[in-house]
């Protein structure tokens, strides 16, 4: 991993964010196991470099982010409030959506996060529409549209990329290719090796990135964001990665994957790789890293505590927020 030319502050920020996502997801898993979390959640463990690299390549709070069912990482990397997120995941009144959305539907408008989405590929047109507003109003904003490899086989992917390219909309499409749609390997249902190749069919640049390398993700997304901001239209970026856990917290994820494959990817852990680069290049010491981790651990602990202590919504609140 080449960290040359980066300020220590920024690299530590990357590390802190990735670690925060990992730790948050591990807590979510714990809460699930303890029976404290209603329903399910899809964790982002192993994919942290993508949200971290991409969301740091935009202007937070100005540009838009449209997320997926596996969306905690995008929210955290965009600066969302951990307590409000955790409260939402536990179905509490103090959550971002007052307990109405849960893990799969966290929206934080104050962070310009247009929502996670429970439908695979369902949020791609929405992201494209946000870019349409930016184009029409000439605001200079860019939208990041995240989705998984499986979403690229949905019609909404095709329809959205086609329109965005035809109209040169300021949007960057980011495939988080963790190689599985629930249990089905992308290789079993798709003939091409690199999904980014599809970009050519729409008339936009397609880029393949090592999704476990935060620096590479950051640089490629930054280039795409600059193109979009200049009015040169969308880019499709495929980040190759792997989810360490199953599809959701209740899925061990081992029936359809080889243990060796899981181990191989765990060895490419994006957090470990950045840590090694920081230490090997004498940018940070083990102590610096420990300090960051301690600070994050405390934040997560506070978020969990806040969520646990928060009240559930009253049943009557189910009838609120339908219409303006």
């Amino acid at each position: 991993m080449n960290v040359q030319g980066y300020e220590k502050r920024q690299l530590l920020e990357f590390y802190s964010t990735m670690y925060k996502i990992r730790k948050f997801e591990e807590e979510v898993f714990e809460l699930y196991k303890q029976g404290l979390m209603p329903g399910l959640a899809h964790t982002y463990v192993g994919e942290e470099a993508i949200a971290t690299g991409a969301c740091n390549a935009i202007e937070k709070g100005k540009d838009y982010v449209a997320s997926t069912h596996r969306g905690h990482g995008h929210l955290i990397a965009s600066g969302a409030d951990l307590s409000k997120m955790m409260a939402e995941i536990l179905g509490k009144k103090t959550g971002y959506c007052k307990g109405k959305g849960g893990s799969m539907h966290v929206v934080s408008l104050e962070n310009n996060i247009l929502g996670a989405n429970g439908i695979v590929g369902g949020g791609i047109p929405l992201a494209t529409g946000a870019a349409y507003t930016s184009k029409l109003k000439n605001t200079g904003q860019v939208t990041l549209s995240f989705f998984g490899d499986a979403a690229t086989n949905q019609g909404t992917f095709h329809e959205s990329l086609n329109m965005a390219a035809a109209w040169k909309l300021p949007v960057v499409y980011i495939i988080e290719n963790n190689q599985f749609g629930i249990s089905v390997s992308i290789k079993r249902v798709t003939a091409i090796k690199d999904l980014a190749e599809r970009a050519k069919a729409y008339g936009m640049p397609g880029v393949v990135v090592d999704g476990n390398n935060v620096i590479e993700v950051y640089e490629k997304v930054k280039e795409a964001v600059e193109l979009a901001r200049k009015g040169e239209g969308p880019t499709l970026i495929e980040c190759k990665t792997y989810r360490f856990r199953g599809h959701h917290v209740g899925d061990p994820g081992i029936e359809y994957r080889l243990q060796e494959e899981i181990e191989e990817w765990k060895a490419k852990c994006p957090i470990k790789r950045l840590k090694e680069a920081l230490i090997n290049n004498s940018i940070a010491t083990e102590d610096d890293i420990k300090n960051i981790e301690r600070d994050v651990d405390k934040q997560i602990e506070e978020a969990v505590e806040f969520a646990k202590q928060s009240p559930y919504p009253e049943p009557s609140e189910a009838f609120e927020d339908l219409f303006v």
């Binding site: 247009l114 047109p125 494209t128």
Partner: peptide
């Protein structure tokens, strides 16, 4: 592309 442009309209609606 009915899904595409109807969804695009939703994105446009929530952004102004």
């Amino acid at each position: 592309s009915e899904s595409g442009f109807t969804g695009l309209a939703l994105g446009a609606a929530i952004t102004g």
